[in-house]
């Protein structure tokens, strides 16, 4: 199993314009992009959305191959969505009719747009995590969620939990790899057998993994307390987030694009 190929939450260090943007800008831009993506209806609007993404990817200098590699886990969802859309979209232009399954022109287009939409959705969120270090990402999230403190949402704690979770993904993957090898060396078989056998085979992997996760959590908690961590109250930051001209430009541009796509989409383009 190629666990090391998992690209979830991976960060590619770089110095491109996109890397340098404020994390809050990038998060907001991604949110706007996703909203616009769902307002897009047809060719014109999809083309605009694709253009925005293409420019962003080109500027970020994230290798295309990494983006494609990240898509692998969603291939199943893509195929599933496409099939469902092809067969279950009612329409007038029937292309093929076999038994109860009808393929319409509208269905094919629907499937096409749906797949493109999901691909772009994933690409833009990948671009966010590829170009933003996990620390900046959670800093940005925390800053954006700050207003929620007024209604007693533990914003700082939530973002701390998130950064810890992100931080430990690679560690846990490595740990999983190690335990798998160790149990394989004792003859464990993770790939063969029927569903029940496979589920059972996971016990020698999951038990040690959970134990080690709890142990790590415990150690981390002690280490944090040793350094007098006591939550967000009165805590200052080493990295201060600051909007620059570029951030304003990107946000305004993204907002204009989103509104434009919204209007165009509403009119059916």
């Amino acid at each position: 199993m190629a666990l090391k190929d998992i690209t979830l939450g991976q960060y590619f260090p770089g110095t491109s314009l996109i890397h340098k943007l404020d994390p809050r800008t990038k998060i907001l831009a991604v949110v706007l992009y996703i909203v616009a993506l769902f307002l897009a209806k047809s060719f014109v609007t999809y083309l605009i959305m694709f253009g925005v993404l293409a420019v962003a990817v080109a500027v970020s200098k994230v290798p295309m191959r990494s983006l494609v590699r990240g898509m692998k886990p969603v291939v199943f969802i893509l195929v599933f969505t496409a099939v469902i859309n092809v067969f279950y979209t009612p329409g007038d232009h029937v292309l093929v009719k076999v038994w109860v399954l009808t393929v319409t022109m509208e269905g094919v287009w629907n499937a096409f747009f749906m797949v493109v939409r999901i691909l772009m959705l994933i690409s833009c969120t990948f671009l966010l995590t590829y170009t933003t270090s996990p620390i900046l990402l959670t800093d940005g999230m925390e800053a954006l969620m700050n207003p929620l403190k007024a209604i007693h949402v533990p914003v700082h704690e939530l973002s701390m939990m998130m950064s810890i979770a992100l931080r430990f993904i690679p560690t846990l993957i490595e740990e999983t790899d190690k335990i798998m090898s160790a149990q394989r060396a004792r003859g464990a078989d993770f790939d063969g057998g029927n569903l029940i056998q496979r589920a059972k085979a996971l016990i020698p992997l999951l038990v040690p993994l959970f134990i080690s996760a709890f142990r790590r959590a415990d150690e981390l908690a002690v280490a944090m307390e040793c350094r007098c961590y006591h939550g967000g109250e009165g805590r200052t930051r080493m990295r201060q987030l600051q909007y620059k001209t570029g951030d304003v430009v990107v946000l305004v541009a993204m907002l204009v694009i989103a509104v434009a796509v919204g209007i165009l989409g509403f009119r059916g383009y």
Partner: peptide, 20 residues
Amino acid sequence: TRETRFQVGLVFQYPEYQLF
């Protein structure tokens, strides 16, 4: 390959973390 794993026993570093 599977037979070899039984004939060539491998004890990893910090093997205590693999007990379950």
